Amino acid sequence: MEDKKVKNGDLVLPGDYLGVIEEFMPGEGVREENGELYATRAGKVRINPEKMEISVEPVTDTPPLPKVGDVVLARVIEVKPQAVIVQLLQIEGRENDREIATSKLAGIHISQIKEGFVEDITKEFK
């Protein structure tokens, strides 16, 4: 184990040693291996003292990836009897100048449209 302590704002590369699990919880851009924490991407170290969490913030402008809970703006491509096909345009609150870094097409099944029974999917989407 190395004795070099990383500090907030330090630039790290994938595989760089960041500390031990007893010091910090691994955040985004950090993996734990046998109790030791390593960077999974190039970026700046961010230490959150309240959560005792260490993460690596990317220094390059990476395209956003949608996560569960994100609000995504999309264009309806096709309305089928049991699903709607949409084209993902952007993630709300993220930079408008970068495209989403994943497949641009997604499906919304009729069972996921709203709570309760959906009698006619065309009344929900057009």
Rank of each mutant, 00 (worst) to 15 (best):
K80L: 14
I110V: 15
V118N: 03
D120P: 02
I85D: 08
P64G: 03
D16E: 06
G35Y: 09
V76H: 06
L13C: 12
K7G: 09
E124W: 05
G9K: 12
K114E: 14
A42F: 02
I85T: 09
P63M: 09
K126L: 14
I91D: 00
K51F: 13
L89D: 11
N96M: 13
N48S: 10
K126Q: 15
V59R: 11
V12F: 01
E2N: 15
V79I: 10
E95N: 13
G29F: 04
N34A: 15
T102G: 09
I121T: 05
K123E: 13
Y17T: 09
V118P: 00
S111N: 15
E92A: 10
P63N: 10
V56D: 00
E119T: 15
L13G: 11
N8D: 15
G93T: 14
L65F: 08
G29D: 00
G27S: 10
L37W: 00
L11D: 14
N48V: 12
G15H: 03
K67Y: 13
I21E: 09
S111V: 01
D97S: 12
A74H: 02
G19Y: 01
K4R: 14
D70W: 09
E28C: 06
D61C: 01
M52I: 05
Y17V: 09
K126R: 14
L89H: 02
E78P: 08
Y17R: 08
N48K: 05
K114F: 06
T62H: 09
G27C: 10
N8M: 14
S55K: 01
I91S: 01
K114M: 07
S55H: 03
E78K: 12
L18F: 10
N8I: 05
E28T: 12
E53F: 01
Y38M: 02
R94W: 04
T40D: 04
K123F: 04
A83D: 07
F24I: 02
A101K: 13
K80Y: 11
K114S: 05
G43T: 10
K67S: 11
V6N: 00
K51W: 03
R94M: 07
M1E: 13
I85H: 02
R75L: 05
G93Y: 04
L105N: 11
G29M: 01
D10V: 07
I47S: 00
K80T: 11
K5T: 11
V56M: 07
L13K: 15
S111Q: 13
Q90R: 14
I110A: 04
D61S: 08
Q112F: 09
K7M: 06
L18K: 00
G9F: 11
E57M: 12
V118T: 15
A74L: 01
G9Q: 08
E28F: 05
Y17M: 06
V6R: 01
R94K: 14
R94A: 04
P49K: 14
L37Y: 00
D120L: 07
N96Y: 08
K123M: 07
G29V: 04
S111P: 02
E57R: 09
P81T: 11
P64T: 05
E36S: 13
Q112V: 03
Q90Y: 12
I110F: 07
I121A: 03
P26K: 08
V59A: 06
P26I: 05
I110G: 01
I54Y: 01
V12R: 01
M1T: 12
E115Q: 08
A83P: 00
E50V: 09
E119P: 01
E50C: 03
Q82W: 11
E33S: 07
G69K: 11
